[in-house]
């Protein structure tokens, strides 16, 4: 009758099953030997590691199947270190599993909560001590201390002010001015319309004035892509069409989404693709966004040629380049 009741009640810890090494000294000795072999393999690993460090030249490459051509020193250092550590671990675990006592033990849990008396005591003490400081009663002290602590914690923020300058108009400006020549990047050579064939793309930067240096900060805003297509393929307003020159159209290369370099141009579809999040811009429609998370077309740079026939910017960009920011109107 009571059998079923027992079945769903706790039968208690199952009986302990002994291992071979627990009662057979020969098995235990064998386990000991296995553990020491594992530890010795670690020693071999460390020796290999030292040998690789001292004797294998660092510019030697060897061919390993699957991995291909591999730096031998780095490979052997790694394998040596791996063996040196792994076998210590395997040895220790094998030791624990075969030779150390494997009887499960039971420990009681203590209740985390303190005894009721202690809690009461604590509260009473805390209140009494708190009151003895006078803080709860003396509101003047309370308020002024609050003010003082509040203010002093602001001072680190004040100190951080010099982390950087204020943005001012910096995000809205680039180095392009009216008349700036377009020069190749790399190479810094001015270019003519005839240098670009139909379907070609070129990356350009503004020409440096003497004494000026090009920094990454400039490039991050100035990089421009030139693309040449057949003029009749443009689908532009007359104004925007006048910003192009003989089928050459210039866009900021900095993605309006998060600022990656919009680097992939597909000749067939005339799409510019940003590899970061795949925003796709349609070149004939002034880089209108046709897919992806970017919200705005790439800003177009108004170009023309100077008297010598070199491509120049007719005006600076008419809007900030790159990703959006709060002050951008």
């Amino acid at each position: 009758m009571s059998k079923e009741v027992e079945r769903l009640s706790d039968p208690g810890l199952p009986d302990h099953v002994h291992r071979k090494a627990d009662h057979d000294p020969a098995a235990a000795d064998k386990a000991e030997r296995q553990v020491s072999i594992l530890f010795m393999l670690s020693v071999v690993g460390t020796v290999g590691f030292i040998v690789a460090y001292v004797f294998v030249p660092s510019d030697k490459f060897i061919f390993v199947p699957v991995m291909g051509s591999t730096n031998a020193q780095q490979l052997f250092l790694g394998l040596g270190l791996a063996a040196a550590t792994l076998f210590i671990g395997l040895g220790a675990v094998h030791w624990a599993k075969t030779l150390m006592p494997d009887t499960e033990e039971v420990a009681e849990r203590h209740e985390l909560r303190s005894e009721e008396v202690d809690r009461q005591d604590f509260l009473a003490t805390f209140k009494a001590r708190g009151a003895s400081s006078g803080l709860p009663r003396r509101s003047l002290i309370k308020r002024t201390l609050g003010l003082a602590l509040g203010l002093v914690s602001v001072s680190p923020l004040i100190l951080l002010r010099d982390l950087g300058p204020l943005p001012k108009k910096s995000l809205e400006e680039t180095s392009w001015k009216s008349g700036t020549r377009l020069v190749t990047d790399p190479g810094d050579r001015p270019i003519k319309a005839s240098d670009l064939e139909i379907g070609a793309v070129a990356q350009v930067l503004p020409e440096l004035t003497p004494g000026e240096e090009r920094t990454l900060n400039n490039i991050a805003k100035d990089a421009v892509l030139l693309i040449r297509i057949r003029p009749e393929e443009f689908q532009l307003s007359p104004e925007r069409l006048s910003w192009t020159h003989e089928g050459i159209i210039a866009f900021s290369k900095i993605c309006t989404h998060m600022g990656c370099a919009v680097a992939l141009y597909e000749q067939q579809t005339k799409h510019l693709l940003c590899p970061c999040h795949q925003s796709t811009f349609d070149v004939p429609q002034a880089a209108k966004v046709i897919f992806g998370p970017a919200a705005r077309p790439l800003p177009q740079l108004e170009i023309t040629v100077d008297t010598e026939g070199y491509l120049i910017a007719r005006k600076p960009f008419n809007q900030p380049v790159g990703p959006s920011f709060w002050e951008r109107s």
Binding site: M67, A82, T85, L86, I88
Partner: peptide, 17 residues
């Protein structure tokens, strides 16, 4: 303790190859 060395060994092996 042994397991620490095993994790180290495995990571070193992966890094080697």
């Amino acid at each position: 303790g042994g397991f620490f060395f095993i994790v180290f060994g495995v990571t070193a092996f992966i890094a080697a190859v």
